[in-house]
Amino acid sequence: MTPAAPEKTQYETKDSGERAEYASGMQPEPDEDHAAAVVFNLLAAETTAYRIALKTKSTEQVS
């Protein structure tokens, strides 16, 4: 089992995704699929949040 990601990763992922989407809107490139990038960033953020919740839940059960 892979250890859960630290909390700051969740925020770094969201921040980097927001910066990338903002920058891409400033200079649109027709060969990039921005919808796919948005979906990827959302899935990464939700996966990280889920892993943090699992880690928190398992920590609470031990205490």
Rank of each mutant, 00 (worst) to 15 (best):
A37T: 08
T59A: 02
N41K: 06
L42D: 10
K14N: 02
A23P: 01
M26Y: 11
E32L: 08
F40P: 02
A49K: 09
A20K: 05
I52H: 03
A35R: 01
R51S: 02
M26I: 09
G17V: 08
V62M: 05
T13V: 13
K55E: 04
T56L: 03
V38Q: 00
Q61D: 05
S24P: 06
S63D: 03
A20C: 06
N41S: 09
S24Y: 12
A44F: 08
K14S: 01
A23E: 14
H34E: 15
E12L: 10
P3V: 11
V38T: 11
T47L: 00
V39G: 07
A53V: 00
A35H: 02
E21V: 07
Y11V: 10
R51F: 01
K55I: 01
H34L: 00
A4Q: 03
K8P: 03
E7D: 12
L43C: 08
E60G: 11
T59F: 00
L42N: 09
N41R: 07
G17A: 12
A35V: 05
T13L: 12
I52Q: 09
A5W: 04
P6T: 00
H34D: 13
T47G: 07
P6L: 06
N41C: 10
V62R: 12
E21H: 05
A35C: 06
T9R: 14
E18M: 13
L54P: 03
P3D: 03
P6G: 00
A4Y: 02
A53F: 03
R51I: 02
T2Y: 04
A23F: 10
F40K: 11
Y11P: 01
A49I: 05
S63C: 02
R19G: 14
A20N: 01
D15T: 14
D15H: 14
G17I: 11
T9N: 10
L42G: 08
E46W: 09
A53H: 04
E29R: 15
E32M: 01
P3S: 10
E29Q: 15
Q27A: 09
A5S: 06
M26L: 13
R19W: 14
A44E: 06
P30F: 01
S16H: 15
H34G: 11
M1I: 04
E32D: 13
S24N: 15
K14W: 07
E32N: 13
M1V: 08
A44T: 10
M26D: 13
